[in-house]
């Protein structure tokens, strides 16, 4: 396809023209579906209002209260992030979702206004489900899997940074890691999330004795349930972190050190991340 420089030569079709034509056709189909024929309800508005909390109220007007709603949503989001993991944060999120969903329903109001009550109720429920299902649940998964995760540790919330590269870990850094369920002689450890400092890095030599354990020859106080003899070299892509347990036992004493040892060697896949030093104004300390 050529495009001579004449201002009277039309723009010609390119590689994306068929796609754009399909887009136009879909847009027309959507317009004619009857869902968007009401006053001031547009495709862009619907999409944007589902993804931006408070925007629907701004679009539906009056603009001043819409702006206020968007401001409140922004504040609630900040509040939710600041108090992530606390009941106050959960409350902020619930309020944010309420304003968001109310806005979306209000935006669609002209479309369903003339419909029967049962249809209106159904439409409202569908819009709530759509907003939560398409925005909040994926956002939560994305947040927890890719960015950060709040953990309850000894009565306080610790926010873990999921993006931490394991290469940057140093001895003494606190880490969160997963453990699978482990079964042994009269004992069973459930799967869950642990939080402990890194004691040895890949390649380090660890030795145990009755009073202490040493990493590359540097002795440290022995931790609860640690083996009393032996030693090993930490594998590549593994970190040694000794989790703390509250064990309640009756009857004959059990040797739990073998089972805890399985959990203490943390592989790359089991590693969740490292806590932020600060979360907003809070300093996160775990000693």
């Amino acid at each position: 396809m050529t495009r001579p420089d004449s201002p009277y030569y039309p723009r010609r079709a390119n590689l994306f023209s068929p796609l754009l034509a399909w887009g136009d056709a879909l847009h027309r189909l959507w317009d004619r579906s009857g869902l968007l024929l009401a006053d001031k309800v547009t495709v862009r508005g619907v999409i944007a209002s589902v993804f931006v909390p408070g925007l629907a109220l701004y679009l539906r007007g009056p603009r001043a209260s819409g702006r206020a709603a968007m401001g409140v949503c922004a504040l609630l989001f900040l509040f939710f992030m600041a108090f992530l993991g606390y009941p106050l944060g959960t409350l902020a999120l619930a309020l944010l979702m309420s304003i968001h969903v109310t806005g979306v329903v209000a935006y669609y109001q002209p479309v369903v206004a003339s419909a029967r009550l049962s249809f209106r109720l159904m439409a409202t429920l569908m819009l709530c489900a759509l907003t939560i299902g398409f925005v909040y649940l994926p956002a939560r998964d994305l947040l927890e899997n890719r960015w950060l995760m709040p953990l309850q540790v000894k009565g306080q919330v610790v926010v873990i940074h999921r993006l931490t590269s394991p290469v940057t870990l140093r001895r003494g850094d606190w880490i969160a890691f997963r453990n699978g369920s482990i079964g042994g002689d009269h004992m069973y450890i459930r799967s869950g999330v642990n939080f402990a400092p890194v004691l040895a890095l890949p390649g380090d030599q660890v030795e145990f004795s009755a009073e202490a354990f040493s990493v590359n020859g540097v002795a440290q106080p022995r931790r609860q349930n640690m083996p009393q003899s032996g030693g090993f070299t930490v594998d590549r892509n593994c970190w040694f972190a000794w989790p703390e347990f509250a064990i309640y036992a009756h009857g004959h004493a059990m040797d739990v050190s073998g089972m805890v040892m399985q959990m203490a060697l943390v592989s790359k896949d089991e590693l969740i991340g490292k806590p932020f030093d600060h979360w907003f104004w809070r300093r996160q300390s775990f000693q």
Binding site: P10, R11, R12, A13, S17, A21, D24
Partner: peptide
Amino acid sequence: AQVRMLIELGEYREAKIW
């Protein structure tokens, strides 16, 4: 005629724009 040429060439979107 230009619009008609674009139609004959099957470029309907471009023909509409023109």
